[in-house]
Amino acid sequence: MNRRAPRKTAMLMAGVLVFLFLLQFILPAYHHSTFSKIMVLASYAVGFNILLGYTGLMSLGHAMFFSTGMYVTGICVYHFGLTGIPALGIGLIITVFVSMLIGAVALRTSGVSFLIVTLMFGQTAFLSVLYFDQFTLGQDGFTLTKELQPLVLGSTSFSYTDPNFKYNAAWLLFAVCLILSNLLILSPIGRVLIAIRENEERTQMLGYNTYLYKLFALTLSGTLSGLAGSVHALLFSYVGATFAEIHHSIAPLLWTLLGGVGTTLGPLVGTGIMHYLIDFTSGWTSAYLLIVGAILVLLVIGAPQGLMGMIRQKWMQWLP
């Protein structure tokens, strides 16, 4: 890591964000809305990547954090008639709490046990959604189109259904997640997390309480995922059990692996490519699970470092 790396990083990230911002003025309507979706889901993947890419912990239950945010925010709007921002805030607080609680238990295990335990907690979250159906309306979920009041800032009000508002809200969310993850990686805490990824015992030997660092990483990761869930509920007006399913836990894993584990831009690249790939292939086959499966297998055999990982290896060693 050379001394000018942080500056290069800052410029690259700023460039990416400005590019994404300007993109909304030239994209046709269809891709405009696709990109809003990609940016929200990429924020979820950025949260996931903090845990997998920079702490070395693979979770198979991240959908529980995403759906916690989504359901808490959705229920606040649907059942209690709150407006978007307070609902988002409550979702955020509860996700922080849930992430810490789950982390405190799950982090008592390590290695493959951690994977299995997160998978099971994720499944429990899904079952809870089905079980408490007086609030969640079971498998089908609910829409927020009628209940959600427009966002009022000063004297102007923004409707959550307005495509331009959607795009910019999604962009803002992604920008926050991307900047946070870059700041984290460059910070001393991030260095300790990477040390844990590389060799936990040695990090312990150096006097760090690795459990607390991992708990911090998991809480931050879960919180960003939950935030993405809350925003998803508000912008796309739908809250449903599919977002708590195990497939939705594996999705960020796939996106992150494809884009590059342990690269801050990888989640965005992976999410974008997968989204368009499935979109593109759905024209001639409905067997998209086969594509997902094949990509997963081929990635681990042929390119475990992912796309941005390859770019880092070949050209840009400083890439965070």
Partner: peptide, 18 residues
Amino acid sequence: PESTIVATIGLLYIIQQL
């Protein structure tokens, strides 16, 4: 360990789809 988990997830999807 982690690669095999990802690979077997891939296998899961392939078998399910077939």
